[in-house]
Design a protein around this nucleic acid. Structure first.
Lengths: 249, 249
DNA sequence: CGCGTTCTTGAGGATTGTCAATGGAAGTGG
DNA sequence: CCACTTCCATTGACAATCCTCAAGAACGCG
C-alpha cells in the first residue's frame, strides 16, 4: 500500500551500519511474527508500563507524550517507521512517558529473551542500537533549544524541517512532498503553543511560500529557504556516515 | 576542600550498580592521572569537537549549551560531579553542543583506548554507562515538558527540585541547603526565560517561602511544597533501584 | 446527509520580553 | 589598601508574543 520498504529498521541500519548478512538474518528472524496493527491515536505503550519486550514501529507515525497532572500535554518526540518505541526501557525500570500512534500503525514486538539472544548473536547491532538512542537524545536537546529560544514560526518551521529530513532518510519524500498525518493540535502539543497560534503561524508560513500544507500532504517548495527561516541545521540528526569505528576494523 | 567523595563516579555507580571489586579497580585505574582543573565559565568541550577521550566531571558544576547562529543560547542540561561530559560522542562523530563549567571544576579524561579496554574488562560497566545515558535522555524529555507546558514559576521551581534531588543523591545537600553557583542569567538560559523575568519569579518563590536563595546558597524549606507548586515528581530521574537484571543473575 | 473533529477567525487579555538605569558585590591592578 | 572595572541583581515602564474564549466554516467519516 505505502512505499515503506518491507522492513524499515533493516533498511535504515543498512544505511547506517552496513549490516553483515549474519546480523541481518538474525534481526529479521527476531522480527518474525509478533506484528501488531494499531489504529490512529491509540496508546502503543503507556507511562508506567513495565514491558518485557522491545517494540519497533514498522509503519505509520507515533509520538512520545508526557503529561502533567492537570492535563497539560507535551509531545516530546516523533517516531517514524523503523524507530524503536521503548528501547530505553530495556534498561530503565518503567516507562516515564507514553508512546501513541498518530496514524494507523504497525509495530513489531520482540520478547526480551529473543532480544537478548539477538544482541549476543550480532554484537554490531548493540552499537547500532545505542547509536539510535544517542541520536534520539540529540534530537531532544535540539527540541529543548527550540522550545527555549525559537519563536513560534521558527519552532514550527524547524519541526517541519526535521521531519522532512528524517522522512527523506527513510525514502518517504517524493518531489519535496510527504504524507503529513499531524493535526494542528498535535503540532501545538509538540511546539508548546496553542492551537490557535499554530494555525496563525502556519498561515504565516504559507503566506511566505515556505510551506504548502493542504489536507494531509506537506510540501516544502524550497527547503533551504525554510531551513534558513527556522535556523535549521541538520547536524544534530547525525545522519552523516556510519559508526566511527565498527568494532575494531 | 569540598565534601565531594574523592571519586564521585565510583560513589554513584556503587549505589546504582553495586560494583564488583574488579570493575571498581579497573575503573579507578583508568581514571588515574589525566585530571584537568578548569576555571569557572570555560568551555570544557566545544561544539564540533571530535574528542578521542571520555571526560568525567569530578567536582564543580557544568552544563550543556546549544547556541543559535544569532547568539541565542540555551542550556540543555546540568552536569554534577560524577557525570559524564561527552559519553554520547563516543558513538556519534562530533559534539552537537558544548559543555561548559559553571563553577571551578575538575575533570578526568580517559583516552579512547583505555576506555575500550575498561569496557571489555568490566562488562557490567557498559550497562551502567548506557543506563546513565538513558537517564540523561529522560531528563531531557522532562525539560521538553517544562519548556513546553510549565509556567515561569513552575519551570524554575521544577529545575530547583531536580537539582536538589540530584545533589542529594551525591551527598551534597546538608539540612536542605546546597551550594548554588548559578547566576540568574544561567537560570534564564536553562528555562528559556529572560533574566528580568527570572529575577521576578525568584522573588515570587521567595515571597511564598518556597525557597531561600541568598548569595550562593539555596535552601528549600519544605521540599514537598515546592514540588507541588512546580508539579515535580522524581520518577523521571530513575533513581530507584539498580539495574533490572545485571546480566543474568 | 448528519455529526464530530479539525480548521479558521475575531476580540481581548495575560504572561513574558525588551530597554534602560541603578546599586551593590566582587575582582583587578596599581 | 584604594580606585576602577566588571558582573550581577534589581526595578520601572512599556511592548510583543502568545493565550483564552468563543463561534462559525470546512472537512471527513459513517
Amino acid at each position: 500500500m505505502t512505499a515503506t520498504p518491507p522492513n524499515p529498521l533493516i533498511h535504515r541500519l543498512e544505511h547506517c551500519v552496513g549490516l553483515d548478512s549474519d546480523s541481518r538474518a538474525a534481526l529479521l528472524a527476531a522480527m518474525q511474527g509478533r506484528v501488531r496493527q494499531i489504529a490512529a491515536r491509540r496508546d502503543i505503550i503507556a507511562e508506567g508500563d513495565r514491558t518485557d519486550s522491545v517494540t519497533i514501529l514498522l509503519s505509520g507515525w507515533a509520538c512520545r507524550t508526557k503529561q502533567l497532572e492537570d492535563g497539560r500535554r507535551q509531545i516530546a518526540g516523533f517516531l517514524l517507521p523503523g524507530d524503536f518505541c521503548d528501547l530505553q526501557m530495556y534498561m530503565l525500570n518503567e516507562m516515564d512517558h507514553s508512546v501513541s500512534s498518530l496514524s494507523p500503525a504497525a509495530v513489531c514486538e520482540i520478547g526480551r529473551d529473543s532480544f537478548e539472544r539477538l544482541l549476543a548473536a550480532a554484537p554490531r547491532l548493540v552499537r547500532a542500537f545505542v547509536r539510535d538512542l544517542l541520536v534520539e537524545a540529540s534530537i531532544q536537546r535540539e527540541w529543548v533549544l527550540s522550545l527555549g529560544q525559537r519563536s513560534a514560526l521558527e519552532r514550527i518551521g524547524h519541526l517541519l524541517c526535521e521531519l522532512h529530513v528524517r522522512l527523506k532518510a527513510i525514502g518517504q519524500i517524493k518531489a519535496g512532498s510527504c504524507a503529513f498525518p499531524l493535526t494542528q493540535t498535535e503540532l501545538a502539543d509538540a511546539t508548546g503553543l496553542s492551537t490557535v497560534h499554530v494555525n496563525r503561524t502556519l498561515q504565516e508560513l504559507r503566506a511566505a511560500s515556505l510551506i504548502v500544507l493542504d489536507g494531509h500532504t506537506l510540501t516544502i517548495p524550497d527547503f533551504d529557504e525554510l531551513a534558513a527561516a527556522a535556523l535549521f541545521s541538520p547536524a544534530y540528526l547525525h545522519l552523516d556516515r556510519p559508526l566511527p569505528r565498527p568494532g575494531g576494523r
